[in-house]
Design a protein around this nucleic acid. Structure first.
Lengths: 97, 97
DNA sequence: TATGACTTGTCAATATTTGGCTAATATAAG
DNA sequence: CTTATATTAGCCAAATATTGACAAGTCATA
C-alpha cells in the first residue's frame, strides 16, 4: 500500500475533498493531488498533520511514508537488498547499544 | 564498516594520499577528507571511480555506500525497522515480477 | 622552525525540491 | 449542449539542500 493511495482511501472514506485537506496543509489543491498520486512526496510534518486530519494512526502513516522513501532511494540499485539488510543490522546495533 | 572508513583503509593499504585520489575525482583535498570521514557523502559516480582507482570491487563499495544512505534516511525514526522491512518486501515483489 | 598531510569552517555555485499559477480533463447536473 | 465542481497536467519561480572551493587551522615529523 502506497502512501498516496492510503491518504486517498482515508480521505474518501470520510467524504473529504482534496481542496479541504490542501487548505489545512496550507498548500494548493494541485499540490495535494500530486502528493496523493505519488507524483510529489509529502514532507514529514505534512504526514503528521494528515494523520490528525484523517483521524488515523500517526505511526502507520509515517511507516508507509518512510518505506516509500527508502524504496525510491534503492529501487534501481542491484545491491538494494544487501544494502537494506546492512541498514537493518546497523539500526539494530544502534537500538540495543 | 562505513563507506569512508573503507575508502581510507583501501587508500592507505595502497600508499595513496588524499590529494592523489582527490585529483582523480576532480575535487580538492578538503572535500575528499570530508568524504572519507563521513562528513559529506560521495556521489554515485565518485563511488564508481573510487572502485577503479582503489582496484576494488565496485559492488562492494556501492553496497556500503547505499546502506549508509538508507541508514541516514531512517536513523532517527521510530518506525525505521518496519519501514525497511516493507521496502525489502517491495523490492522482492518488483524483482520476482 | 619548516614542511607535508590532513582537517575545519565558511561561503558561493549548483542542483533538487517544493509550491503556485494556469489550463486541461473528467464527471455530474441542469 | 452548457455549467459547475473536482481533480490532474505542465510549466516556472521560490525555497532548500548539496556540492565544492578557498583560507586557515592542527598534527606529525624532520
Amino acid at each position: 500500500m502506497q502512501f498516496g493511495e492510503r491518504i486517498k482511501e482515508l480521505r474518501e472514506s470520510q467524504g473529504l475533498l482534496q481542496r479541504q485537506l490542501a487548505a489545512s496543509l496550507e498548500i494548493d489543491t494541485p499540490m495535494f493531488s500530486k502528493i496523493e498520486r505519488g507524483d510529489r512526496r509529502a514532507k514529514r510534518e505534512q504526514v503528521l498533520k494528515l494523520a490528525q486530519l484523517l483521524n488515523t494512526d500517526e505511526e502507520e502513516l509515517l511507516t508507509i511514508w518512510l518505506a516509500e522513501q527508502v524504496y525510491q532511494l534503492v529501487e534501481n540499485e542491484a545491491q538494494a537488498l544487501q544494502a537494506l539488510k546492512i541498514a537493518q543490522h546497523d539500526i539494530n546495533q544502534a537500538n540495543t547499544k
